[in-house]
Design a protein around this nucleic acid. Sequence first.
DNA 1: GTCATTATGTTTGCAGTGTATACATCTATG
DNA 2: CATAGATGTATACACTGCAAACATAATGAC
Lengths: 219, 219
Amino acid sequence: MSVQATAIKPGSARKSPPPKPYHHGDLRREILCAARTLLEENNIASLSLRAVAKKVGVSHTAPYRHFKDKESLLAGVAAIGFAEIGSQIARAVEMHPGDPAAQLQEAGQRYVQLVMDNPQCVQLMFGGILPCDDTYPDLRAAGDLAFERLKMIIEEGQSSAVFKQDDVELLAMTAWSCIHGLSVLFIHGSLDIAASTTLEIHTFTKAVTATLLNGIGTG
Amino acid sequence: MSVQATAIKPGSARKSPPPKPYHHGDLRREILCAARTLLEENNIASLSLRAVAKKVGVSHTAPYRHFKDKESLLAGVAAIGFAEIGSQIARAVEMHPGDPAAQLQEAGQRYVQLVMDNPQCVQLMFGGILPCDDTYPDLRAAGDLAFERLKMIIEEGQSSAVFKQDDVELLAMTAWSCIHGLSVLFIHGSLDIAASTTLEIHTFTKAVTATLLNGIGTG
DNA sequence: GTCATTATGTTTGCAGTGTATACATCTATG
DNA sequence: CATAGATGTATACACTGCAAACATAATGAC
């Protein structure tokens, strides 16, 4: 063993200025990434920690050096999901400066698209498996940030008098409810309408968003 | 063994005119009921078939005489959930004859209440664990029936010109999205607003439903 | 009634899971 | 270079879903 180790030395640090911190080199991130992939490949019920470890190529107890337990790993994946929601909302705002109605519409489209692309992750995020208290601060923070971004759209719309002057959180939650509910019903698939085509989904989302804007708009 | 059996004969059929069909007496129903209870007591991830069997007082493989596998049992529980949604919508219609707007509002309140009372069951119903195709016809039928009831409200509203003349399924899905999304965000609990009080939830739901009605209403 | 068939429930066993514990190895720091 | 802490592994155990063999009770043919 020791002979082989000294003979080859399997690429320990040949030329790695980036901060490869330890043995494996950011195993934590790789585990999160693998978990996310496996999560979407099968459903959440059949995601096993051991399969994640195998996919990464480590022993089945290695993840416990980076995550307290399975739930903690799942919380990490969910946090990434919330962060992406936040990013999509931010991008929607950037795309339509000064037009909160368009921002909301754009954000809705992006939200639905994100959910359609990562249905199992959404199921994890909103499925009640993870506690919503402060057990996982990163998860909580990511979710709160996304909601804050949505509220900013609402506030801008109220400032420019295109949205009603109701309670901000109420309007924001109404908007989120509408889009989130639509997304969930889409991926649930029981509704015959929610066929498949991206175009159909897009059209449908547009209609629902229009109804939403009609409901929270002024006049 | 046989001596004891003949000696006591543990209440096999003392006086049971109702159709207690077999040994246990409607074990299937008891399993479904126990599963539902345990589901709500813990979360869905930690619901085990063996715990259900133990709660009912049978061996841990007895459920397999009534359900093909665990998923099939879960589908049964979910079907009950959809049936209850359908019932609540029907009751909302009965309560406000000739007033589709009030029917929709009432149905929304009842939907939210049902979700708040059975969060884990809702999670099961919409969580993507169960297939939404025709694998479980009863499940599918129960879900479709509930949606049909909602569409009937929409149609009545269109007949009396209180709702827009859009596509019925579109309006129905918009309504369902809005209420369902609200419910899910409520039980998710990340939103600070979704405090706890029944009154608050009621008020919130009323506001969202009003926005919805404003969006799909005429004028 | 008798008895075979079938429906229902139990026992046993197995592979797969999460995770606790003890051990091995690597990296950093004195 | 040596020690300590961080990281990965090996092993063990209780629990899970489920298949197969077995036991018992209800039903139906004769």
